[in-house]
């Protein structure tokens, strides 16, 4: 398959950046968008040009490293897939494909299609953990977790922290990410002990990083590659209210 590409090129954080046109020829329909970029990059390197920089790691949809805005959709115009899982067969031969980086103020562009998502790391450091004494692993069946609760926690835990929610939100809000982490831990007995501090600290850090406020448009849910539901945002709101107004 052959494609015309319009790719965002930006030398560094301070560069203004621009779109550049490329052609991708002889691409296998089983190739992912990233593998297509590999082919284009090979040609660019052979011609002595600077290859297109993009983030990637596992290439099987579980690490949360990749993330491009493809034809206006985060992780592509389709639902529930990461960029690395998007196969070229979903496009038509000869299509023009526009590749842009995730755009949100807290995600500064490092180079081309690579953005700095360390804001998410700092939100996690603020409260996305469970404090436990390390040592011998406890008996697995020591703490009973009802199946329904475990399932809901797992649904939230599916979040890979890719940043698609903030990149697609018209307000650049990271609520779905924070909600997934807060929800996952608040549901499980191990996480309940620190639920109040966690909700307050993670939301405070999210605001500090400069993410926008949620206005309940649910754009995030529509484009989350893992299908994390906005009902977790409702739980985050509840956790936050409980932490703010509830008894200490």
């Amino acid at each position: 398959m052959d494609f015309k590409l319009k790719v965002w090129r930006q030398k560094n954080r301070d560069d203004k950046g621009h779109f550049e046109d490329y052609t991708a020829k002889g691409i296998s329909e089983a190739a992912s968008v990233l593998e297509m970029l590999d082919v284009v990059n090979r040609e660019l390197v052979a011609a002595g040009k600077d290859p297109i920089a993009f983030d990637h790691d596992c290439r099987e949809g579980i690490c949360g490293s990749c993330g491009l805005v493809i034809n206006g959709g985060v992780h592509g115009p389709f639902e529930h897939n990461t960029t690395c899982e998007l196969r070229m067969r979903r496009f038509s031969d000869g299509d023009t494909i526009v590749l842009e980086p995730f755009r949100a103020r807290p995600f500064p562009i490092i180079k081309d299609l690579v953005v700095d998502r360390s804001a998410f790391d700092r939100i996690m450091q603020a409260g996305g953990y469970v404090t436990v004494k390390t040592g011998q692993a406890p008996e697995a069946n020591g703490i009973a977790v009802p199946k329904k609760i475990a399932d809901e926690a797992m649904d939230a835990a599916q979040c890979v922290g890719c940043g698609a929610c903030a990149a697609t939100c018209p307000n650049g809000s990271a609520m779905l990410f924070v909600a997934a982490k807060v929800s996952q831990l608040a549901l499980l007995p191990q996480g309940k002990a620190e639920r109040k501090e966690r909700a307050l600290a993670m939301v405070a850090q999210m605001d500090k990083e400069g993410f926008g406020s949620c206005s309940n448009t649910y754009a995030c849910e529509a484009k989350c590659p893992k299908g994390v539901s906005v009902t977790h945002i409702a739980r985050l709101n509840r956790e936050y209210l409980r932490a703010g107004f509830g008894s200490k």
Binding site: E100, R105, S213
Partner: peptide, 26 residues
């Protein structure tokens, strides 16, 4: 407060398709 959170708009406007018109226009 939410203005300026995306300093540069996307070239292809795709997000709006996933949001209810009423939410976008509130």
């Amino acid at each position: 407060m939410n203005r300026g959170v995306r300093p540069q708009a996307y070239k292809v406007k795709g997000t709006s398709k996933t949001i209810k018109l009423s939410s976008r226009l509130s």
